[in-house]
Design a protein around this nucleic acid. Structure first.
Length: 283
DNA sequence: GCGACAG
DNA sequence: ATCTTGTCGC
């Protein structure tokens, strides 16, 4: 049943959300807090997490929230948790966290309870950190709620605080040479809000990296680069691929629906549990 | 009416 | 976010 979530929240709700962001923003730490973050080779870093939420096409409510954990530097998947969820908040630019973050926090909590030894040492988040209307994007929000170092990795420039995807910006992109090349994204106040990063040699579009929590921008950019086999860093890419795959296996796909009304015994999932646990463990 | 718009 | 196959290039 394709449901629709309420259109745009009333101003009163947005006002409450802004207050919440302002409150939590005060707790963001934009410095390196872990020893591995300052090491040239990130020695000591063994697990990197990625999160994403994918949607069912004609439906703005049903989605799959996923959390994956990869080994570093091998980038092999060690853990996967995909779960169908019902979103309650609509997407409003600047308030993405209120739509997606509760389910990502749930995923982290499940991991903490069931496989604490696989807890990632940092999370790469699909979206922005401090590169945000009020300096508190989804990567900051998730970082504060989980107390994990987080990095915001966006695929498009969020045009805030004077930043514009204009001719000058496009020219700077064109001038990026090799993978790893960057240029700073300076806000109106003069502060560096994030970095545009050419994630690999033949990528046209850069990634927009910003601090989420418990990490410096320099380390965030360097680690993001270290996680890229393709344009999108592996943790986020795997979370995306697996969440979309989970939806396809659950609803989409050719042939008759896997679970026609009245068949298939109660509850039990066809493929190893509601969360599609641990598969293809690396090493 | 026009432009903006992370996911 | 999603709608979507083949196709061009290394």
């Amino acid at each position: 049943m394709a449901r629709e979530v309420a259109g745009r929240p009333p101003e009163e709700t947005l006002s409450l959300w802004k207050r919440e962001q302002a409150l939590l923003k005060g707790r963001v730490v934009d410095r390196d807090t872990e020893a591995w973050q300052r090491d040239p080779a990130f020695s000591g870093l063994r697990r990197v997490g990625g999160v994403d939420v994918s949607f069912v096409k004609g439906d703005s409510v049903s989605a799959c929230a996923s959390l994956v954990v990869l080994s570093y530097p091998e980038l092999e998947v060690l853990y996967e948790d995909c779960r169908m969820v019902s979103l309650t908040a609509p997407y409003v630019s600047g308030f993405l966290a209120f739509r997606e973050v509760p389910f990502l926090v749930d995923a982290v909590r499940r991991l903490r309870e069931k496989e604490p030894h696989l807890m990632p040492q940092v999370l790469l988040v699909d979206g922005n950190g401090v590169l945000h209307h009020r300096g508190f994007g989804v990567a900051c929000h998730l970082g504060i709620l989980t107390d994990l170092p987080c990095i915001g990795v966006a695929k498009k420039l969020l045009q805030v605080d004077g930043l514009e995807n204009n001719a000058l910006h496009k020219e700077k992109i064109r001038l990026l040479q090799a993978g790893g090349d960057t240029f700073p994204l300076m806000g109106g106040s003069g502060a560096i809000l994030g970095m545009a990063l050419k994630s690999h040699d033949h990528s046209t579009k850069p990634l927009y990296v910003s601090v989420g929590h418990k990490m410096s921008l320099e380390a965030a950019v360097r680690l993001t680069r270290g996680c890229c086999r393709f344009r999108i860093p592996e943790p986020v890419r795997q979370a995306d691929i697996r969440s979309r795959d989970y939806i396809r296996r659950t609803l989409g796909g050719p042939g008759p629906p896997r679970t026609r009304a009245g068949e298939e015994p109660e509850g039990a999932e066809t493929r190893g549990g509601p969360q599609g646990r641990l598969r293809r463990a690396g090493r």
